[in-house]
Design a binder for these strands. Sequence first.
DNA 1: GAAAATTTCGTGTACGTACACGAAATAAGA
DNA 2: TCTTATTTCGTGTACGTACACGAAATTTTC
Lengths: 356, 356
Amino acid sequence: MQTKKVTVKDIARLSGLSIGTVDRVMHNRSGVAEESRRKVMEAMESLGYTLNTNASLLANKKHYRICCLLPSFESGDYWELVYNAVASAQRDAEGYNLSIETLTYNQFSREEFIEAVERLKADLPQAVIVAPIYRNDTIELGHYLKEKGVPMVFIDSKVSEADYLAYYGIPMWESGYLAASLLLGDEPPQSIVNFRIERGGGIADNPTLARRHGFTDYVSENLPELRIYNEFLRPHDREHNFAVMDKFFAAHPDIRHIVTFNSRVHLIADYITTRGLKGMSVLGFDILGQNIKAVQEGVVKYLIVQRTQVQLRRGVNALAEWLAFGTIPPLKDNYMPMDILVKENINFYSELYKDN
Amino acid sequence: MQTKKVTVKDIARLSGLSIGTVDRVMHNRSGVAEESRRKVMEAMESLGYTLNTNASLLANKKHYRICCLLPSFESGDYWELVYNAVASAQRDAEGYNLSIETLTYNQFSREEFIEAVERLKADLPQAVIVAPIYRNDTIELGHYLKEKGVPMVFIDSKVSEADYLAYYGIPMWESGYLAASLLLGDEPPQSIVNFRIERGGGIADNPTLARRHGFTDYVSENLPELRIYNEFLRPHDREHNFAVMDKFFAAHPDIRHIVTFNSRVHLIADYITTRGLKGMSVLGFDILGQNIKAVQEGVVKYLIVQRTQVQLRRGVNALAEWLAFGTIPPLKDNYMPMDILVKENINFYSELYKDN
DNA sequence: GAAAATTTCGTGTACGTACACGAAATAAGA
DNA sequence: TCTTATTTCGTGTACGTACACGAAATTTTC
């Protein structure tokens, strides 16, 4: 390819028409004779025209705003990962005609979600990224946005019934199934315990539910005899949790396999470290700082994680292409890799965690 | 940030100078009084100027050529992955002022490598990406390129003694160590077999060597009693390989753990499937199509893979930033994630394999 | 067949940055 | 003080695309 880049000017010359006309056919705008359109298309074809993205974006003086609607977070919890990913995407967008904003809401308060949606509507951006919690309200938001012509992409989890442009996340059921195969595949135990962390607001958490289903489906397919104990912990009550676990392990000293389906496996790691328990097989999810530490120390054996940054980047890209060029993503639902982290490889995943 | 993007014009106005002067200080070009430079810097600071990448790249009419120097490949082997990654990066570069070329050489022929280097020198690109095989010749190439001011990045593996801008790849020793922990961690066997695939040219393959060291170091640390058998296969001689394996398993019917350190674990999967062996624990490397299939069918238990596409993308980005803005990558050696693939999660890695 | 309506097209300007060219200002030399 | 170097700066054009405006060509209307 030693030939220079072909430009609209080249195809204008070849087709015997002007830049303006070429431009019109390239944007399927009206006001061009069928004959001319054909000529232009042919010229584009034969010269192998490709758009100069820089020039296009520069000339296209529109400035797009993308708004991310996410649960707010406390330091060290799952949503901080997502927020960091947004911050990172924001920096990437800097210098392009894109800006990324964030709107957060308390995930346990439907009122706050609705209020956040109102704020969104009050100053409507050109595109929206949502990490959905409230199913019905999200569907409604989808309707509203569709009417306004504002595309929405889901990350983290999705609401299938809503109108959305694309989804980027991991398959939740499969992540549970994977968890079971890792934890139980080699030398299946007699029984295991699932520590379930209650959510503050007592709201149905569908993603985690799907994950548990994946796990139990694996069990009933492969280990119908396995006994799964369920014990309930609280997010912020260490004393209570320790009491629960003390009691449980006193009653079941033989149990060595522990699973938890949300991001708080570090609560259990804390207990194990404090009590000095040995020989436990613990599996958890999500690459929180405290979870990383637990894996590095060998307390948690497997951590299944998703690439939040990548998901968000893909989401932003999809929206940017839609906004700038009207491109629709090839796949609507994009199930992205679930990475398996163990002590020996976790250190090389740091980029996923650091906001880099 | 409802304020419009600040441009050079803005900072020219604020500093009371002209666009030209602002431009000069931004590029540290000569011919600007100290006083003026200070004013401009201050204005940039206070207005929070950020470069408009699109305009910059458009106006900067230079067209950069990046050349990738890689081993040639046959369909289905490891280097095809890398080549696909290059092709993908090439498409990404399309439309920007970047073009990516490929120069391949037979990895078993030093002559071909040297010849490829000559071709490279004959039509020197602005930057080079190398997947190195021949250590000394690569060092020499590094010297030459340094002299010419052409930056070089390594992918896949590196030659530490050479002059290079950056390296993107996985840590080989650690990948072997990880392999051992996965294959032997849970219920350590008495003995295992390492099928070693001889390379056509009989050349020292340092990366694979480092990987084997990682494996054996794990073993001597944790399982000093473990017996590792070494058997040698050939890349393209199925009959011979089957004979070797038949003989081996006849002599060692108790062995159920198999490892191989290069990308050809599918050769062993083929054998296992054909002979109908059951209960084998097989671990291999690299996300080749045939390896994926072997994992999906449950013949290979673990596949440790690297994200070739990401490595290449990072390499290209590093070079592009260096070329366009003179930016030096924050880290010289970038050790990237090693992903653990099993039957239950491999399907979601397809993007890494498909050239997408 | 001329005027009006409509379709079809070309020209010009803008986007923000890079850089060449030469003008103005300053310093050096006589 | 006037000329000649040298430093310092402003202006203009280009990059390739987007789009508004209006001119030319075509069709419609009476």
